[in-house]
């Protein structure tokens, strides 16, 4: 007998499974999956300005920094200012889908490819952002590779205000609705990577980025 049959067989025996109750239980499972019931939700104000305000507050609480601009076209200049302010390099690896902005005009050299160890700055967009916890949701795809938000020491994410949703529930619903199914890699990111393993003292920059900077586009 395979281990699968052995394990499932014992579970079935313990649960008193038979063909009759299996039919009913399968129907019950389909009902649960179709209902997609939510648990209690913390109150999150729904107006777009309130969502953006909450996203900013929670992002700051998670040690991210936030800049606000009016249109996506302003993003390269805003990012150039941020990099210059911290004395960071102006070479960045970028999501292919964002490569067409005028980066050269802002003095930034971008490489649209997968991330490599030597990349110090990674520029991404986001699929959406979750106001409740100040969280970015990034979906991996050929023009938005996952490691760009992970390997570089600095992660800069462009976030249109129109893509801020109240909670994780809405983020998942948006993904299923727009993409048809969950993409291979969904990453919810809340601030720079951190560890508290040594003496429960929090240190930013464990294996992932040391800093996460949000460029919030108010008008889009």
């Amino acid at each position: 007998m395979s281990s699968r049959e052995d394990i499932l067989g014992r579970v079935r025996a313990k649960l008193g499974r038979n063909e009759t109750n299996a039919v009913a239980a399968r129907t019950g499972i389909d009902v649960i999956l179709a209902a997609k019931a939510q648990g209690p939700r913390p109150h999150v104000a729904m107006e777009m300005s309130a969502l953006a305000g909450r996203l900013i507050d929670k992002s700051l609480a998670y040690s991210s920094t936030v800049d606000q601009i009016a249109t996506q076209a302003e993003a390269p200049a805003a990012i150039a200012r941020y990099l210059a302010g911290l004395g960071l390099p102006t070479q960045a690896v970028i999501w292919p889908k964002l490569a067409d902005l005028d980066w050269a005009g802002a003095g930034i050299t971008v490489a649209a490819r997968e991330a490599q160890d030597a990349d110090l700055v990674g520029i991404t967009g986001c699929f959406c952002a979750v106001a409740e916890t100040g969280t970015l949701m990034l979906c991996g795809s050929p023009d938005s590779p996952a490691a760009i938000s992970l390997l570089p020491e600095t992660h800069i994410a462009i976030v249109p205000a129109s893509r801020i949703v109240p909670g994780m529930e809405e983020a998942f619903a948006l993904a299923l609705n727009e993409l048809g199914q969950l993409p291979r890699a969904v990453n919810f990111i809340s601030g720079p990577s951190r560890t508290g393993d040594i003496e429960q003292t929090i240190v930013l920059g464990a294996h992932g980025p040391y800093r996460v900077h949000l460029i919030l586009i108010d008008g889009e």
């Binding site: 997609k36 019931a37 939510q38 909670g167 994780m168 529930e169 990453n187």
Partner: peptide
């Protein structure tokens, strides 16, 4: 069962574990 259930549990797990509102990374891989 569902992604909604994951959202519910993610309100509890990081808070109970490390006292965080959310962990830095929640990855859902398919």
């Amino acid at each position: 069962p569902t992604l909604e259930d994951l959202a519910t549990l993610m309100r509890l797990l990081p808070r109970s574990a490390t006292g965080q509102s959310i962990s830095n990374y929640v990855s859902v891989l398919t």
